[in-house]
Amino acid sequence: MHRFASPARFLRLAGAVQPWLAGGTLVLMALGLYLALFDSPPDYQQGESVRIMYIHVPAAWMALFVYACIAVASASLLVWRHPLAGLFAKASAPIGAGFTFLALVTGSLWGKPMWGTWWVWDARLTSVLILFFLYLGLIALTNAFESPERGQRASAVLALVGSVNLPIIKFSVDWWNTLHQPASITRMGTPAIDPSMLWPLFSMAIAFTLYYFWVVIVRVRGELIEARLRALTRLQTEGR
């Protein structure tokens, strides 16, 4: 991790990796969408609406994955003062919020024909909504201070407190009410869904992951350039 602490080295590496991530995202996204929309069978119960799942499920996975990435970055910011970790977490939060929002919206669109309602206060829906609020809190706190470093460190503390609380919130909401179907992929060995549906799902999931890293690199580069710009303007004004 610490080998990437130098912004200059990061910028060099990011420049090299970025086109590959972008290409991989576009190819896999196109493949996944083709498989999902044209080359996979409709579900025997859900009909064509099942195709929403190829967006919904990867988005929900990403919502959690991005939060885990933010928590790890926050820990390394607070423990080792890793200079890029704060920027990484700051750049990740809006993307994670976007994925969470996508999961909520697609879930709602799927819920209308399936459950007959846009929204139910079901355990899983509610915990994703709470995750969305946590993301909003992170974004708001990061941008609430004059000094960007203070905002990053404050939201790092919040992200870690949230990561302790997320399992508790999840558990309490499960206890509270549940209607959402149990996970059908994570059963190891024999997944409960057919390979013709599994392949589009996996290619979309990998495409979403690559997309996340692609955009996060673009955003961190932007932050670094902005920080350099600020430093230069400060030098210039002080020089006068």
Binding site: I130, F133, L134, L136, G137, A140, L141, A144, F145, E146, R150, A154, V157, L158, V161, G162, N165, I168, I169, F171, S172, V173, W175, W176
Partner: peptide, 25 residues
């Protein structure tokens, strides 16, 4: 965390609400 933050009054409910849900439930 919100000491010295701009719009601290709005931030506080936003940050605490998710954390309060288990206690409420």
């Amino acid at each position: 965390l919100t000491l010295g933050a701009r719009r601290g009054g709005v931030l506080l409910p936003l940050l605490t609400m998710p954390l309060y849900i288990p206690v409420l439930v």
